[in-house]
Amino acid sequence: MESAADPSLLPSIIFTTAAQLVDCVDKKLLVLLRDGRKLIGILRSFDQYANLVLQDTIERIIVEQMYSDIERGVYIVRGENVVLVGEIDPEKEDRVQLKEVSLDEIYAAQQNEIDNHKRQELTKNSKLIDIGFFIDSQQEDMY
């Protein structure tokens, strides 16, 4: 392709749909789900709904500057739940500025974060109600 030779040129066909995932097949990706989960795995296939097949997947839980990985294996992710897909640069991968901690630690930190978030939401909602807003829905997206 010409674009490979000259990065200033745009590729002749720009896919703006799930088709642009072709470049990501067999590469290591980070997939962010709507519930906030981060999956890191090798993309093996996808379809028009951006349903994904991930192999050798790990789930990475990140809380502030800490992280922990859980081995998960093969995933079929339903496309609707995907927020973003990003390719991981294997060279830069090791230079993560996060500290790896044990699962127990990360779960505790995560629970703490969730509790804090809930508390914030409650205060925010009660303040909103005070000034005359009506709260009829809960925040569903956690990412």
């Binding site: 192999q55 998960r72 294996g73 093969v74 339903r78």
Partner: peptide
């Protein structure tokens, strides 16, 4: 019903 699914995890052998 399919629309309720977030993801599926299948055994490695299936691939």
């Amino acid at each position: 019903r399919g629309n309720n699914i977030k993801y599926l995890r299948v055994p490695d052998e299936v691939l």
